[in-house]
């Protein structure tokens, strides 16, 4: 009896804790959303929560900010550019990383530990330090300003984290799987496609999301290797260009933030179902 009551109480407490945390997490985003629907003069003169004084007086809301952002010349092209950058900029590094992670986890070869350690160390290299030597090399290759240049760049910069995360997952798969495959006479390539890839879908899905987010939201790497001319600019740069160098047009920035996060969220929601089995599925044995 008492046990039941205690369990009910603790469940109640669980719900309260979760909801408080969720509300706290949501608050900034809600503020961002409300601000994006307010006219500029009001944004400057009162806080976004002021709308709650009369939440249903619709005169205080406007879609003008969104009209300005979406209607900006070149925004459609920028969306296309962002897709052209992000999709290969995600698929190429994750594919290469999956192969490497498999080799790091299950193949024996000299220098394996050293190379893996190097990969971890490279996680900390600040990208800004690589711009000058890499841009010089790209110039000699004659690929500056082309999309392959930025795919390569995002591949290089995204690999350490992707390899690191995937190696930990693939390394945790049960060894019996590989033993039996080996007895069946499967080559490493066959076990990669037949065992590793199918089992790693959840892990790959998470890595895809993170890499996609990072590439989609990137501004600096694109600016360096691709430039800021209208035929190649991504959404991030187009959004940054909405606002003058000294201007602080919050109403536009907030609307733009929602416009540019729409697609990453679609990617997240569509891949969310793969998370049921997790990124480190096999690692329970650790």
């Amino acid at each position: 009896m008492m046990d039941k009551l205690a369990s009910k109480l603790s469940r109640g407490l669980l719900h309260i804790v979760i909801i408080i945390l969720a509300v706290a997490w949501m608050l900034p985003t809600v503020g961002l959303l409300i601000t994006s629907f307010r006219p500029p003069a009001e944004v400057a003169h009162s806080g976004w929560w002021a709308v709650f004084e009369h939440p249903f007086s619709f005169a205080q809301y406007t879609v003008e900010n969104y009209v300005t952002v979406i209607g900006k010349v070149g925004m459609g092209r920028a969306f296309l550019n962002s897709l052209i950058i992000s999709i290969p900029g995600t698929i190429i590094p994750v594919t290469i990383a999956a192969f490497a992670a498999y080799a790091f986890a299950w193949m024996k070869f000299p220098g394996r530990q050293f190379l893996f350690l190097l990969t971890v160390a490279l996680l900390v290299v600040p990208l800004q330090m690589t711009f000058i030597p890499i841009l010089r090399a790209f110039t000699q290759l004659g690929i500056v300003g082309t999309f392959p240049a930025i795919w390569l760049a995002h591949t290089g910069y995204g690999l350490p984290l992707a390899i690191y995360l995937l190696r930990n997952f693939i390394g945790g798969l049960p060894s019996e799987l590989f033993d039996s495959a080996s007895i069946d006479g499967a080559s490493p390539l066959q076990s990669f496609f037949r065992i590793v890839l199918p089992l790693s879908v959840p892990a790959i899905a998470s890595v895809v999301i993170f890499q996609f987010l990072w590439v989609w939201n990137d501004l600096l790497v694109a600016l360096i290797y691709l430039g800021g001319t209208p035929d190649v600019v991504p959404v991030t740069l187009q959004v940054a260009n909405l606002v003058g160098s000294r201007g602080q047009d919050w109403h536009l920035l907030t609307a733009a933030a929602f416009v540019s996060m729409a697609l990453p969220l679609v990617v997240f929601f569509s891949l969310q179902r793969y998370f049921v089995r997790g990124i480190l599925a096999g690692s329970v044995k650790g």
């Binding site: 500056v144 600016l223 360096i224 001319t229 740069l237 160098s245």
Partner: peptide, 17 residues
């Protein structure tokens, strides 16, 4: 080409490259 706040980075990297 508008480069906004990243002007110093873009200009310096491109000049040196």
């Amino acid at each position: 080409e508008t480069v906004g706040r990243e002007m110093p980075v873009v200009l310096l990297t491109r000049v040196l490259a």
